[in-house]
Design a protein around this nucleic acid. Structure first.
Lengths: 223, 223
DNA sequence: TAACTATTCAATAAAACAATTGAATAGTTG
DNA sequence: CAACTATTCAATTGTTTTATTGAATAGTTA
């Protein structure tokens, strides 16, 4: 038998391999983006403002720890999270961080207070009002991310198309917009646009994975 | 409004603060130990084989990210996880790591194969057999960790006392031993001792937090 | 086949980190 | 109050990690 200490050192070394992936802000952002759907390297570089080589290097690191996987499609290398459980884990990390670090709360409230009220609607209230047919749920992420998975009942108008496609929205109902989740600003931007056009709109803070988690938690607490 | 990129950079910087805590094997081991109950610095140093100064430094890091908290008791500084959610998060990390990294599975099976069979009993089977009164559940962690919380129905005999207190075990029932969890070897050592004394014994891989998680998951899936 | 594209590789420089040591602090006990 | 204890601090060392650059590769299109 291997010495106990040596064994534990090796074991925790392995855990730390995953941990190391989570120790770089840029890598966390990449995982979050990939959690919404597969993307090519240069696409990720554009979104995150990093150099392509740098993104590639981070993706290698993530790949070595088997958090993402990749395949070639034509000239592009498409990266994706290795498993849905990776995305779910990220939600745990977000939750924990938000619980422990007041700084995150501060940052969130900071950006969402500039004139127009941006209070998000609570998941529970949304579900109730959707049931009653009072609101329309709008997914403003790019089309392919919507196609990969969305909150049931949501319609898709990507952020970029929003101003052009205002007419396809039902005029009489309030719009609830959502995007990648609590750290994505698209839904807030969408609400701003809609409001400026005189359309009643409100933001949903949660994204697809937060919604999933909510549904699981509410199943649990309803026992 | 702050520029979007700058805001995101700051936000992910904060998440990475938690991530950085998870990037060092020693720090992960410390969190795992603290999850079982509060401990003083030199105690942690002894268990992990680190220097006291080094442990202290790691604990500072964990403290800055608000994953642990501390208070003075006499001459000692007692550290503790800041919240139960930290311990629960660690279980998520373990799960994810074990899913993604085959190396961990390998390490686990490696140490538990040296002659005596060490197959653990499944949680489900344990609960069934406890209900029927066929087995006795034995917590071999130090007394204070048992006092902090244990699996319902378990009796406590710390590893160190085990050989002395064999007589206090019911002679006719099989013993199921558990300890801090899947990465702690005490339960296996306990089973070895018991078997060598002719007592029927089997290992439970799960610890207190894995048990909690199991109970939650089984509630969910039974809907 | 030549020009082009997306990505990776390799080398480097700068920055961050971990472990170690010895001294400093704060609290306790005789 | 002196000796002692547990812990932290500060400085140093060696190691990892990060971002950047420019070249190399593999695949596509004209």
């Amino acid at each position: 038998m291997k010495a106990e200490r040596e064994w534990k050192d090796q074991l925790y070394q392995e855990f730390a391999r995953i941990g190391k992936c989570l120790s770089s802000p840029k890598r966390l952002e990449l995982i979050d983006l990939l959690a919404q759907g597969p993307k090519a390297v240069d696409q990720l570089a554009k979104i995150t403002g990093m150099s392509v080589a740098n993104v590639s290097q981070h993706l290698q690191t993530l790949h070595e720890s088997r958090l993402v996987r990749s395949h070639k499609r034509g000239n592009f290398v498409i990266y994706d999270i290795a498993e849905p459980s990776v995305a779910e884990f990220m939600v745990s990390l977000h939750r924990l961080s938000e619980n422990q670090l007041v700084e995150i709360q501060k940052l969130k409230s900071e950006i969402l207070h500039h004139g127009i009220s941006m209070e998000p609607i609570a998941m529970e209230e949304l579900l109730m009002r959707m049931d009653r047919g009072e609101v329309v749920l709008l997914d403003v992420r790019p089309e392919d991310e919507y196609a990969m998975g969305h909150i049931p009942g949501a319609i898709s108008i990507p952020m970029k198309e929003l101003e052009k496609q205002l007419s396809s929205l039902p005029a009489d109902k309030e719009i609830v917009a959502y995007c990648r989740g609590p750290y994505c600003l698209m839904s807030a931007q969408a609400v701003e646009i809609l409001k400026s056009k005189g359309i009643k709109a409100i933001r949903l803070e949660e994204g697809v994975y937060e919604w999933k988690r909510y549904m699981e938690d509410s199943k649990l607490s309803s026992i």
